[in-house]
């Protein structure tokens, strides 16, 4: 008796419990798919999904779509994050700029990001440029906010040190304000990275011409190819997971001296 309980405990690592819901779900899914008939249209068997994965992989389709989505997200991050950081710096360092820019920033920010798409589409067409603008915009908002907040929150006691040693404006910014705001700026960039990935998928779904995971999903949906859709979801999810993981690790690294008081 005791031996049995012991064995059970020894061979039942808790993480296995976490596999119960996905396994049950997959079994149910396959069962539905095997029923055939009307169900077969909606539910595809796991084997089919696997086959789709292999096909997409070997044809290079997946790599192409994935690469173009990732490229879009990263260039959006670079452009939107870069401009956002500059705007945030201007707003953080100059009160007049802050006063003039913040009502505009705050009112534009209220529009759900993908809500801009019809307008941007009218202006720049439904090609890559429009998509890039939206993705960059999604990176712009958080970087402005966090850069601005980071600079605003630089403590007066640190700035006093700069005054005592007669640092000029540029020296104060470069030696004190910028490094002090850096953790916040990075937080903004990390958030921007997560946002750009989401908005990349979003714009590709909406403007589904051209390459990209979102476009691929959307076209697969029109052809009722759930297997392809699922493969895309898998890769979107894995990338989201990788981004969050990366952010977690990087923040620990970047913010390591934040906890230490100056």
């Amino acid at each position: 008796m005791t031996l049995k309980t012991l064995n059970l405990n020894a061979f039942k690592p808790v993480w296995l419990l976490g596999l119960i819901p996905p396994v049950l779900f997959l079994l149910w899914w396959d069962h539905e798919a095997a029923k055939g008939g009307a169900n077969a249209l909606a539910f595809v068997s796991l084997a089919q999904v696997g086959q789709a994965l292999i096909d997409m992989f070997s044809s290079g389709e997946l790599a192409l779509s994935y690469g173009s989505s990732l490229g879009r997200a990263l260039s959006g991050l670079l452009i939107g994050g870069g401009i956002g950081t500059l705007v945030g710096i201007a707003m953080g360092l100059s009160k007049p700029v802050e006063w003039a820019a913040s009502p505009i920033y705050n009112s534009f920010r209220q529009v759900p990001i993908l809500g801009w798409l019809p307008l941007i589409g009218l202006w720049f067409g439904s090609g890559d440029l429009s998509k890039l603008i939206i993705v960059a915009l999604s990176a712009f908002y958080p970087t402005v906010l966090y850069t601005f907040e980071g600079l605003k929150q630089v403590e007066a006691r640190l700035l006093d040190v700069g005054r005592v040693y007669r640092l000029n404006g540029w020296q104060t910014f470069w030696r004190i304000q910028w490094p002090a705001a850096l953790p916040s700026i990075f937080t903004g960039l990390f958030q921007a990275l997560a946002f750009t990935w989401i908005s990349t998928i979003g714009v590709e779904l909406l403007f589904s011409s051209g390459a990209g995971l979102g476009a691929m999903m959307q076209q697969a949906q029109l052809q009722a190819r759930l297997d392809i859709v699922l493969v895309c979801i898998l890769f979107v999810g894995l990338t989201g997971f990788a981004i969050n993981f990366l952010i977690k690790r990087l923040s620990q690294h970047v913010l390591s001296w934040r906890s230490v008081r100056a």
């Binding site: 976490g18 998928i201 779904l205 979102g214 999903m217 759930l226 699922l230 895309c232 894995l238």
Partner: peptide, 20 residues
């Protein structure tokens, strides 16, 4: 039981579920 599934699903942008 549900923690890992929850954490995994959380990573996927909601929009990606639209076609499915």
């Amino acid at each position: 039981v549900f923690g890992p599934t929850f954490q995994a699903l959380r990573q996927i942008p909601v929009l990606a579920f639209i076609p499915m």
